[in-house]
Design a binder for these strands. Structure first.
Length: 216
DNA sequence: GAGTACCT
DNA sequence: CGAT
């Protein structure tokens, strides 16, 4: 019957609803991982990973870069999106089609059709790297979802509510997983626990996270 | 407008 | 969050 061919009646196979506007696409990017990493190599040769400084003056443990028309940056003056890499003065590298198309198809599967990201934040986690609980609220367009692609070592993702004190769920994100949140969940607090030591067969001792947004 | 994904 |  249809459920055998197309998955269970509650949704496509491999799409796990976590909340009204949040979906975990197990292993959705796994087959594309080599192509994604190839594209990433070219991007990072133009705009290298670097540790940004928070407005409070602290060095972030995550190493970041961007591709696409806009990139997220933080320094002593605050958080913002901008069209050029402050490190090089050049525009951020273009967003390769393989990245944009992956994000778009994942968003569609999660119920957010026509997702057209104009920013892709690239985060590298080494063992011990963490990202404390925060909201993605620097984007002008909050109607578009966030699409998060996990590559390499697994990480414990923290997924809270709409206020900082709401209870926080923990879920492990594995290589190839894609998490999509939007609509009523778009402003949920989230973060990542310190990355555990390990060696991934493709990426070695690191996790790479790609986060696609519609910033403008 | 400040503060902010930083720290204990 | 607070000031307006």
């Amino acid at each position: 019957m249809a459920a055998d061919l197309f998955g269970p009646a509650h949704g496509p196979a491999g799409v796990e609803p976590l909340s009204a506007g949040t979906f975990l696409l197990h292993g959705f990017a796994e087959a594309q991982a080599p192509a994604l990493l190839e594209a990433l190599g070219h991007i990072l040769a133009q705009s290298p990973l670097r540790h940004l400084i928070t407005p409070g003056g602290q060095r972030m443990s995550v190493a970041m870069s961007n591709c696409g028309p806009l990139g997220w940056v933080s320094d002593r003056s605050g958080y913002r999106y901008q069209a050029s890499d402050p490190e090089t003065g050049q525009p951020w590298p273009p967003m390769p089609d393989v990245l944009r198309d992956l994000a778009r198809s994942a968003a569609t599967l999660a119920g957010f059709p026509d997702f057209a990201p104009d920013a892709c934040l690239i985060n590298r986690y080494a063992p011990g790297t963490r990202l404390s609980l925060h909201q993605d609220r620097d984007e002008r367009d909050l109607s578009a979802p966030i699409v998060s692609v996990s590559l390499g070592l697994p990480a414990v993702f923290l997924f809270g509510g709409l206020t900082r004190s709401d209870p926080v769920r923990q879920l492990t994100l594995y290589h190839g997983d894609v998490l999509v949140w939007g609509g009523p969940d778009r402003l949920r607090f989230h973060g990542v626990k310190p990355l555990a030591e390990g060696i991934h067969s493709l990426l070695g001792a690191q996790r790479i996270n790609l986060t696609f947004r519609r910033a403008a």
